[in-house]
């Protein structure tokens, strides 16, 4: 039972250098967030302080709330401060290196070092995060809507409004006007063409298309793609998001 947001070890070796963490972008973001944190801490009184780990989590919360608002939903994601920042000295680099993600379907990331297929590794990761089938489904759909892929890839970002927390991923995945086929150029990538014009609309990977092909996952995707599923999608995503952010907070339990 390791890993998690507490400790802000994403700012330390080895995590800051992992390919799945977009090292270049990450360095910039952390610099900005640290600046905000320092300035904010100066403005606080009564011995109050906020850690970088809390700022990172709060930044995610602020972004998701804003993305939900853009979709017309006001949501408030619960936030529990109290994370602290570990030092490099407190970090067993060799042992942490073994945790390097080989695949992360939530961010549409897959490497050949994985021991199973992309979809099997998605289920494995979800199981390690103690997610249910609906939680895994809504998180993948939401993360695609939020345009949160590793390396800013557009695979599975089945929306014209990336960065808006809406159910477009499910609506467009189940849309019969799209015909999917294997890309002839890129192995492991699929192309979604307009069934009539043949125009390329989307690209996706197996961990996107599985929500249309697996009968059980399709059943859940239908729930979120339905007209009455828009609000449910946002609410369920927010609950699952908060669950993942607090998975390592044994101090709260």
């Amino acid at each position: 039972m390791r890993g998690g947001a507490n400790g802000a070890r994403i700012a330390l070796t080895p995590q800051k250098n992992w390919a799945a963490n977009n090292p270049k972008e990450l360095a910039k973001v952390l610099k900005t967030l640290t600046k905000v944190q320092k300035k904010f801490n100066k403005s606080l009184s009564n011995g109050k302080k906020v850690s970088l780990a809390d700022v990172i989590v709060l930044g995610g919360i602020a972004a998701v709330e804003k993305a939900a608002k853009k979709a017309g939903h006001d949501v408030a994601i619960p936030f529990a401060p109290g994370r602290t920042d570990a030092t490099q000295k407190q970090t067993d680099v060799k042992s942490f290196a073994r945790l390097m993600p080989k695949a992360d379907a939530f961010r549409n990331y897959y490497s050949d070092n994985s021991y199973g297929s992309p979809t099997a590794m998605m289920v494995e990761k979800a199981a390690l995060l103690t997610l249910t089938v609906p939680e895994m489904t809504v998180l993948v759909g939401g993360m695609r809507a939020l345009d949160a892929n590793v390396g800013q890839s557009k695979h599975g970002v089945l929306t014209n409004k990336p960065g808006t927390l809406n159910n477009d991923f499910f609506v467009n995945l189940l849309d019969m006007s799209t015909k999917w086929s294997k890309s002839s150029k890129f192995p492991g990538v699929y192309e979604g063409l307009d069934r009539v014009t043949g125009k390329l609309k989307w690209t996706a990977t197996p961990v996107d298309l599985i929500f249309g092909s697996s009968s059980e996952l399709r059943a859940v995707a239908e729930v979120y793609a339905s007209n009455d599923g828009k609000e449910k999608f946002v609410n369920d995503f927010v609950i699952a998001w908060a669950k993942v952010m607090n998975l390592d907070r044994f101090d709260l339990k």
Binding site: V36, E65, M245
Partner: peptide
């Protein structure tokens, strides 16, 4: 920090120029 502080900090983070996808990816 309390809820009010957190709200203020959220506004500051969103004004820092970091986009929604970037913040989501980092979290």
């Amino acid at each position: 920090i309390d809820t009010k502080d957190a709200e203020a900090l959220k506004t500051k983070i969103l004004k820092s120029g970091l986009s929604i996808p970037t913040l989501v990816r980092t979290a």
